[in-house]
């Protein structure tokens, strides 16, 4: 039963991001949960002019986000804010093109669920991230809270 449900829900990255509207707040999985194909699909829509504005909350963007949705050529159409600065967004924060939201990691789930209206959550399954020790636990909770917040929006 679950296999057929899963198969029915399978789609392409482009199709998955098709319904996202302008001005949506996107939160994507942190670290190993960064979803490369979905972020690329968002970047393609933005570059094509199909999406004019996207708001993104990042937490330590690593490899894929800086190459796609956080790329410098998308500065005009992506409003970005980071909860932890890393190699991927440090340059943008430095020149004022990316905001930084000071916080303690354990506060992230509260900040997201009580102060933000999440429109889209993008992540990928990653078993390794579930084994990482605290304080990274907070990032796991952050991803889970993000998903729950966006689910609340759709139900």
């Amino acid at each position: 039963m679950y296999k057929s449900l899963y198969r029915n829900k399978l789609t392409t990255p482009a199709k998955a991001v098709e319904r996202v509207k302008d001005e949506s707040l996107l939160i994507y999985g942190a670290l190993l949960a960064e979803p490369p194909a979905l972020l690329e699909a968002f970047a393609e829509r933005l570059r094509a002019g199909d999406l004019n504005k996207l708001r993104i909350l990042s937490s330590l963007p690593l490899v894929h986000a800086p190459k796609t949705v956080l790329a410098a050529d998308l500065v005009d159409c992506v409003e970005r804010c980071s909860t932890f600065v890393g190699a991927g967004d440090r340059g943008l924060v430095h020149v004022g093109l990316n905001d930084y939201l000071p916080n303690h990691l354990h506060q992230l789930p509260k900040l997201i669920s009580e102060y933000m209206t999440v429109d889209v959550a993008a992540t990928r399954r990653c078993f390794v991230s579930c084994m990482i020790i605290p304080p990274w636990k907070a990032i796991r909770f952050h991803t889970r809270t993000t998903l729950q917040s966006s689910l609340k929006m759709t139900t």
Binding site: L60, S82, T83, F84, V85, G86, R90, V93, H94, Y100, P102, N103, H104, L105, H106, P134, P135, W136, A138
Partner: peptide, 20 residues
């Protein structure tokens, strides 16, 4: 988290680490 006048990383888990 701050180096040479710029944000380098974040507060992150510093306080969480100490509290534990």
């Amino acid at each position: 988290e701050f180096m040479e006048g710029h944000q380098f990383s974040g507060t992150g888990g510093q306080l969480d680490f100490r509290e534990e």
